[in-house]
């Protein structure tokens, strides 16, 4: 039984790691800020959930599991909020969503309402 749980837990951790790698690929490959944020935040939360679930299956029942649950709650709270803040800041700074080769919601507004314009140039 414990042996089987170990294997399932290991598989879940591996799946979480793969999801995180997919997220990294998405951040590099997606066309604009918003799809990149989407890729990063979804896979971040999902990958962490899978990994924590896997660790929970491997760890002995008890205090460690409670800690993992708390970590999970913290990630579920902060990661989506961070993605929301990032997207909000980008929109406030005048970055508009972009699909394919044309701008679906009009041109970027340089120097939008935000305190600082955060373009895509910083992503390397």
């Amino acid at each position: 039984m414990a042996e089987a749980l170990h294997w399932i837990g290991g598989a879940l951790i591996l799946a979480g790691a793969l999801l995180s790698i997919l997220g990294a690929v998405g951040v590099l490959r997606f066309p604009d800020v918003y799809t990149r944020i989407h890729a990063a935040s979804l896979t971040d939360t999902g990958g962490a959930t899978l990994m924590l679930l896997g660790m929970g299956l491997i760890s002995p029942l008890g205090f460690v599991m409670l800690k993992l649950l708390l970590v999970w709650g913290f990630i579920m709270l902060t990661s989506p909020a961070a993605a929301n803040a990032l997207a909000n800041a980008a929109f406030g700074a005048g970055v508009r969503p972009r699909i394919g080769t044309f701008q679906i919601m009009g041109e970027d507004k340089p120097g939008g309402s935000g305190p600082e314009r955060s373009g895509e140039g910083t992503a390397s």
């Binding site: 709270l77 902060t78 909020a81 929301n84 803040a85 909000n88 406030g92």
Partner: peptide
């Protein structure tokens, strides 16, 4: 504009 951030930060 930052209502989500404020709620999460308050928590």
């Amino acid at each position: 504009q930052h209502v989500v951030l404020r709620v999460v930060a308050k928590l």
